[in-house]
Amino acid sequence: MGTEQTLPILDLNDFVRGDAGRRAAFVSTLRDTAHGVGFFYLRGFGLDEAQARALFGVSRAFFELPQADKDALRMSNSPHFRGYTREGDEITRGQKDWREQIDIGAERAVLPLGPDDPAWKRLQGPNQWPDGLPEFRLRVLDIQAHLTLAGQQLLRALALALGQPVDRFDEAFAGTPVQHIKLIRYPGQEQVRSAQGVGAHKDSGCLTFVLQDVQPGLQVYYQDRWIDAPPLPGTVVVNLGEVLEILSNGYLRATLHRVVSPPAGTDRLSLAFFLSPRLDAALPELPLPPELARQARGVERDPRNVLVPHTGLNLLKGRLRSHADVARRFYADVLAREGIVLPEDAGAYN
């Protein structure tokens, strides 16, 4: 069971527009929060309530399209893991997630590929957009730009929190950072086979922003219990991904989290935005100041989720285990080479 909301609330304006005292207080609070629970609410992230409502309006319009129209955009069309996924067709920790969603990345051209190029280069490419909903594309790309800027500002604060130069992360995110949005609808529990909206997991990137509509369900695992992170107007929920855990030798920890399916008679809308370094970025561990290095816990070792310090490789392993239909169609060579075995029914449309 979850508990009442206990996550801290930070305001990015304190860092971006504040005086020296407010900036220092923000960095200190961010350090404590990122080392501890690893999740927090953020105000001042560049999107007002009217923009958020408009976004969820076009999200609702998409999910209310006829099933055939959504299926025409199914992710199994895309080697870049872009497009629509039906309820039960994404896998977390070997179990089906009961949510439907559309995955959208930065709108970029396919990378040139030679026979010896690494498989992670296939992750970049165009999106699939619904016909007849022109506002959908505009709203989604607009929030992608807002949250990318907020993420870059937050990374500068995190650099200071870790005793690094303020621009420590700038180069890795310059030019073509990985920008990945999921628009998600969780159906009510009377329509699903389990309460797993999405199973307990860590995010494979660097920073995640979760914008929630009105229905709760997000939970964070901290100090041996699940903590609720319900919607809070004017905020976005932020959590750290595996990249930051690796770079800080576990001083920062990517935290397990999940979504519980909403009650019968309701559904839940949310947007998750994942910001990661460029696909080709291989980042060395940060030289932490001695007082922080003594508190580093080491990278958590989970044989089901081996962390690697390379953006493209780390993201690809997560995509392959989550979307078996795309993996089988476009990455059969990787599955064979790595000896990856996928569930037989994963990704099969009913």
Rank of each mutant, 00 (worst) to 15 (best):
R321F: 00
T33Y: 03
W226Q: 05
L271W: 05
F39Y: 12
K70L: 01
A61N: 09
Q152F: 07
S322V: 12
V16F: 09
A34W: 06
K96P: 01
L147F: 13
E338Y: 01
S276V: 12
L207G: 08
L154W: 11
V308D: 01
T311D: 03
A20H: 04
Q101T: 11
A200Y: 04
L247N: 00
R17C: 11
V110F: 13
L315N: 05
A327Y: 06
N350M: 14
D170I: 11
D267K: 10
P130L: 02
L232A: 03
G38Y: 06
W226Y: 12
V214C: 10
R225S: 12
P290G: 12
F15E: 12
G234R: 03
R31H: 01
R17I: 06
R304L: 07
P187D: 07
T92I: 15
L149A: 15
N239K: 10
A195V: 03
D11Y: 09
Q191I: 02
F169M: 01
W129V: 07
P187R: 13
G312K: 03
R297L: 14
A109H: 08
L316I: 15
D345R: 15
N249L: 07
I9W: 03
A145Q: 14
E87L: 15
Q144T: 13
V58F: 03
L244D: 01
L73H: 03
E49S: 09
K182V: 09
E90K: 02
V243Q: 14
P231N: 08
V178N: 07
L292R: 02
N314I: 04
V140S: 01
L313D: 15
A61I: 07
T148R: 14
L316Q: 15
A109Y: 06
G21I: 06
V27H: 07
S322E: 05
N77C: 13
G199M: 09
P230V: 15
R301P: 00
G83A: 05
E285Y: 00
H180K: 06
L271D: 03
N13S: 13
V243I: 15
V243R: 06
P177V: 08
R93D: 08
K121E: 11
D71T: 12
Q295D: 10
Y84I: 04
R337C: 07
Y221M: 00
P263N: 14
R53N: 05
P309Y: 01
P230Y: 09
P287H: 04
G132F: 06
A24H: 09
G175P: 08
R22L: 13
L218V: 13
R22F: 05
G298L: 09
K182L: 04
V238T: 07
W129M: 03
D69W: 07
N314T: 08
M1E: 15
L12S: 09
A68V: 10
Q51M: 07
F45G: 05
W120Q: 07
L12W: 12
V260G: 06
L12R: 08
F15K: 14
P262Q: 11
L315D: 04
L30K: 02
N127G: 08
H257F: 05
T85R: 01
L155C: 05
Q153A: 14
R43S: 05
R86E: 06
V220F: 08
L275S: 13
L160D: 00
A20C: 02
A296L: 10
N350Q: 15
V306Y: 03
P277W: 11
R93M: 09
Q101P: 02
G234F: 11
F136Q: 01
A336D: 14
